[in-house]
């Protein structure tokens, strides 16, 4: 995902608004599109979009911070989502989480220094019969053990070179 180039912000805000719309009910779709393009919500872009649609910045920011989908810092190439649903919890997801956290040396929401991995947890991915489950970008890995997840992470690391 690209980091936003600040000089393009006014044009970017215009393009978002013309694509999604400017009525108040479009606030969430606008934020979702921002995140789709950049992997996170760039602060300066929220300011520009608020101005563009004539909504107080506090209101748009208030919406953005209310919903857990939105992130305000750039994410790594691979976004790791550890499922913390009930079935996964009972199946030992805490152990998996701490293995990943130790292995990558990052905590919740943090990104590795090489910008390769971001670690987050989600409430439930809905693949309960495959518990414990971890999603990396769009791929879901089920029935995981600590050994399996280490192998998977290594696989992603090696793709890098």
């Amino acid at each position: 995902m690209p980091l936003i180039d600040e000089s393009t912000i006014p044009a970017e805000a215009k393009s978002l608004v013309s694509e999604i719309g400017s009525t108040p009910d479009k606030s969430i779709p606008l934020l979702q599109e921002m995140q789709r393009r950049y992997g996170y919500i760039p602060e300066k872009l929220v300011e520009a979009v608020a101005k563009e649609i004539g909504m107080p910045l506090a209101e748009l920011y208030g919406v953005a911070t209310f919903y857990s989908q939105f992130r305000f810092t750039p994410v790594g190439k691979y976004l790791i989502r550890v499922c913390k649903g009930t079935a996964c919890h009972v199946a030992g997801t805490e152990m998996l989480y701490s293995v990943i956290s130790d292995e990558l040396n990052v905590d919740e929401g943090e990104t590795t220094e090489d910008m390769l991995f971001t670690l987050t947890s989600v409430a439930c991915l809905g693949c309960c019969s495959l518990a414990p489950v971890v999603m990396i970008n769009d791929t879901v890995y089920g029935k995981l053990t600590t050994a399996k997840i280490k192998k998977i992470l290594n696989g992603y690391r090696n793709e890098k070179g």
Partner: peptide, 11 residues
């Protein structure tokens, strides 16, 4: 908006 962890009927 099936939010309950451990539920996937609607999905």
């Amino acid at each position: 908006d099936e939010g309950d962890p451990g539920a996937f009927m609607d999905r």
